[in-house]
Design a protein around this nucleic acid. Structure first.
Lengths: 154, 154
DNA sequence: CTCATGTAGGTGACGTGTCACCTATATGAC
DNA sequence: GTCATATAGGTGACACGTCACCTACATGAG
């Protein structure tokens, strides 16, 4: 447990910039979709998966897998979204334990209202400041790091 | 609001890898300090700032500035940490409105228990997989992006 | 001194995320 | 069929973060 090589100044600076950027980026995007359509980041992600799914519906487990969320998180969040009429839940005829989540008209309207601003902001804050080479390189690096994190835990 | 240029496939892949990596990295680090010393990421960050401060104490506003947190967040979090005896609060003699947050012996013990594992994990998951060039480049990119985000909101 | 205004910090309500745990159904061995 | 076990999903408690709002003290103008 002892004698851990500490981070160098460069590493520490980079790490702090990274974590700070994450927090600011997420907060900015959250405020944006919240203001545009009353959607949180989590709401937005759920609705994106649903609009990409056949017939706007998906099994809870598949939703969890698509978002890389715990199932209990999906349960809680879908319950909250259901109260706001953004999605609806229905049992699955093929599997008595299963459940489908379906996007409602309200949900569809909300994401259509939120998406343009969201995309524009991501473009403005991130991609407008990066060259194509940098985008490719970052994609490769994030993929590389992600496989390490995944291997280490779950 | 219409005619927003959508993200290319490369951009979208990179963006998803990025956001996914962030979430997994934070969750992993959180579980680690939680298991090692019963500390959340937020606890850890607060204690790092406190140990770096003269006499292990700092004004609430300075703590907020150092962490880039809202002051109300600091208030809430310090209150929770105070209950667990990780920090203590004292009034500021020079400014009747002010308050100091001080690290306790318990808090110092906790971060000393958490730090080695935390640093080792950051090194293993991130820096061991990056060349020095990549670290420098990422530092520059994150800095560049962060200044855009900061300019756009606050 | 007195009053207007700004600043430090705290509070309550509420949405979010995790953990531990629960119920109900499915499924394969026998 | 019956039982053990696995799986789908949900629930409650609690920590975290944000927003709107509040109180108390500081400070400069007059």
């Amino acid at each position: 447990m002892n004698d851990v090589p500490w981070l160098s100044d460069d590493e520490q600076r980079m790490w702090r910039q990274w974590m700070g950027l994450n927090a600011e980026l997420l907060a900015t995007l959250n405020r944006e979709t919240q203001a545009d359509a009353g959607l949180s980041n989590a709401d937005y992600q759920v609705l994106v998966v649903l609009t990409d799914s056949a017939e706007g519906r998906i099994r809870v487990s598949e939703l969890a897998a698509a978002l890389q969320w715990e199932r209990s998180r999906v349960s809680h969040h879908v319950a909250r979204m259901e109260k706001r009429d953004l999605v609806s839940r229905r049992g699955c005829p093929d599997d008595g334990r299963g459940a489908f989540v379906r996007i409602t008209e309200t949900g569809r309207a909300a994401i259509e209202r939120a998406a343009p601003g969201h995309v524009r902001t991501v473009r403005r804050l991130v991609f407008d400041a990066l060259s194509a080479d940098e985008v490719a390189q970052l994609g490769e690096i994030f993929h590389r790091l992600r496989s390490r994190v995944g291997r280490s835990t779950g």
